[in-house]
Design a protein around this nucleic acid. Structure first.
Lengths: 231, 231
DNA sequence: ACCTTCATGTCGAAC
DNA sequence: GTTCGACGTGAAGGT
């Protein structure tokens, strides 16, 4: 990894065009050739970047650029698309290279998959007498998160989300439409289960006769059997 | 901005929990206190990070940590949420600080807004005799990108996207449902216009009687009047 | 290779 | 401050 701190201007052309005026920034060149241009604030997202596969070419500035104070022109060209990043370096305050090796990678826990496992294991969260038909119940347009039968034996399709938004309601609606064509299942009710449900999503769901349920992840985990843990 | 290259392990706890085993990485500390942990590959996204507002606290390792080779423990605590990042430093290969100043920021072009302006200006792209009623036509659930009248005077709602996907068709469908309740407008047709329309989105649109139109951004720009340019 | 869904999404703008 | 949709979304997993 090469780290350069320099005053520079940056131009990107690809899916859009973007320009960064002259300022001091960090330019990070990774081992795979990818380049990240960071300012000293904001978020984890670089101001500009080029994703691998790409190649970095260093060129001398032309006369006009040199007159502007440009000391080097870096062109980063994507290997697949015609995306291109051009960094015009002026003053370089720092330049160092480091051998980092390959990273062993990240271990995660707590995402939607886990919420789905917990709910599958605790179907009574939806109501007494409910039972799980199956998790990831297949349909032609994709699997429904949970298919259940309520205490009266009525089929219920459950869509699980960490955050319930309008897209999730649309998704569940499409599933319900399909499932209700199956005479062995129909009528199929819908339940939209999430840690948090946005008002607009809730309104749309209720309007379509879908039941909304906000679930407490920590509470589910609390009564969780360790053997069902993902990790 | 402070740049540290060190062997380290990292733990994050917040919306999820995540762990990074011991390896050599770049730790970037920005002026606003935010921290990014990068490996020497992958994408522009850090392996782990903490967004501002947050505060970095440096502590001595306890005996067990010291026995493991830990030389310092950095705790990055988010100021609003209970998100927390803990970086345990072992060997430090590089440590430097740099004053970058405030960044003037990015100038963009070529996004959906521009496409919408261009189409509003060249409604004849949809067909001869079409006229624009208005851009950003308001409805209770948000503005329709373009409302037009075709050559026969029939109202047409146009949804503009850079990439046409299933979400956009759903969005347009909701608009059409609402607009068709207005006796002054009904019947309202729908047009789904995008630089690129995904097959599934096209199928859904056609199934709902929505016309699909792939638009050529460069061609629209070519005949574009400079006064309508966003920049 | 294509398509779908998830994300510690992030980000900006309207409300 | 909250809610919403766009993003150079990126990244992972399934067909």
């Amino acid at each position: 990894m090469r780290l350069v701190i320099a005053t520079c201007s940056v131009d990107y052309a690809g899916r859009l065009t973007a320009h960064l005026p002259l300022a001091t920034r960090l330019i990070m060149v990774k081992a795979d050739g990818s380049v990240l241009v960071h300012s000293d604030g904001g978020s984890y997202k670089p101001l500009n970047w080029m994703s691998p596969p790409c190649t970095l070419t260093v060129a001398e500035p032309d006369d006009a650029e040199r007159a502007d104070g440009v000391t080097a022109v870096w062109t980063v060209q994507n290997g697949k698309t015609d995306d291109r990043l051009v960094v015009r370096l002026h003053e370089v305050a720092h330049d160092s290279s480091h051998d980092l090796g390959v990273d062993p990678g990240l271990v995660k826990d707590g995402v939607e998959a886990h919420l789905q496992v917990l709910l599958a294991d605790q179907v009574e969260t939806f109501g007494a007498g409910w039972r799980l038909v199956r998790r990831e119940y297949p349909t032609p347009i994709g699997p429904v998160d949970l298919l259940c039968r309520d205490d009266e034996g009525v089929a219920v399709a459950v869509e699980v989300k960490r955050r319930g938004e309008i897209d999730g309601v649309e998704q569940l609606t499409r599933y319900l439409e399909l499932l209700n064509r199956d005479p062995l299942l129909a009528p199929v009710r819908g339940v939209f289960a999430a840690q948090e449900i946005k008002p607009q999503a809730r309104t749309l769901a209720v309007d379509r006769g879908i039941t909304c349920l906000t679930v407490d992840y920590d509470a589910l985990r609390g009564v969780d059997d360790p053997s069902t843990r993902l990790f």
